[in-house]
């Protein structure tokens, strides 16, 4: 119901600024490498030619937190690693999102012991949990697309300062 209906087919589309920003965010989301265990292999596989996550604008895995807006925590987080993870999360610019990939990152998995953080949500706020041990690349891509839906529906007011 925009101006394009009045003007006919002139190659113009109208939208809201919020939607345009959300669209651009989801189509160039750069994840930060945070491979900690075997889930990282599946994450690499999701990036590689066969599954090709670059179809969704994610061809770049940034090793630097300053250049990334998505953290994929792939693998078990040890108690000694937790402060490092939190520090890297704090170094990422806003807006930022976290995917907890696999059972170990989500809830500790089979490692219910003193050395492993029982779910990375104790350290950073998690947006999407991907189940599996390890999850297949399809599952990770599904998690990413679920996050896209969430980001597309976000209002400016909801996004943290």
């Amino acid at each position: 119901m925009g101006v394009e209906q009045k003007l006919g087919n002139m190659g113009i589309a109208t939208t809201t600024l919020e939607q345009a920003v959300a669209w651009s965010r989801t189509n160039a989301m750069w994840p930060m490498l945070f491979g900690l265990a075997c889930c990282a292999i599946e994450m690499m596989s999701a990036q590689a030619a066969h599954y090709d996550m670059s179809r969704f604008g994610m061809e770049l895995m940034r090793p630097s937190p300053r250049q990334s807006d998505l953290m994929i925590v792939a693998g078990r987080v040890s108690r000694k690693m937790a402060p490092v993870l939190r520090r890297l999360y704090d170094q990422m610019p806003e807006p930022k999102w976290v995917i907890s990939m696999g059972d170990c990152a989500s809830c500790g998995g089979v490692f219910n012991n003193y050395a492993i953080v029982q779910g990375v949500d104790e350290v950073v706020p998690v947006d999407v949990y991907v189940a599996g041990c390890p999850p297949r690349p399809e599952a990770l891509i599904h998690g990413v697309l679920t996050l896209y839906e969430k980001v597309r529906g976000m209002k400016f007011a909801e996004i943290k300062k």
Partner: peptide, 27 residues
Amino acid sequence: DYPLGYEEPQFTFNFEEINLRKPYAKE
């Protein structure tokens, strides 16, 4: 004699109860 486990496993019957006292990161 060091305690073996760190967290109580959650099952369907005690999920809510344990969930309430889990330390989630706020920000």
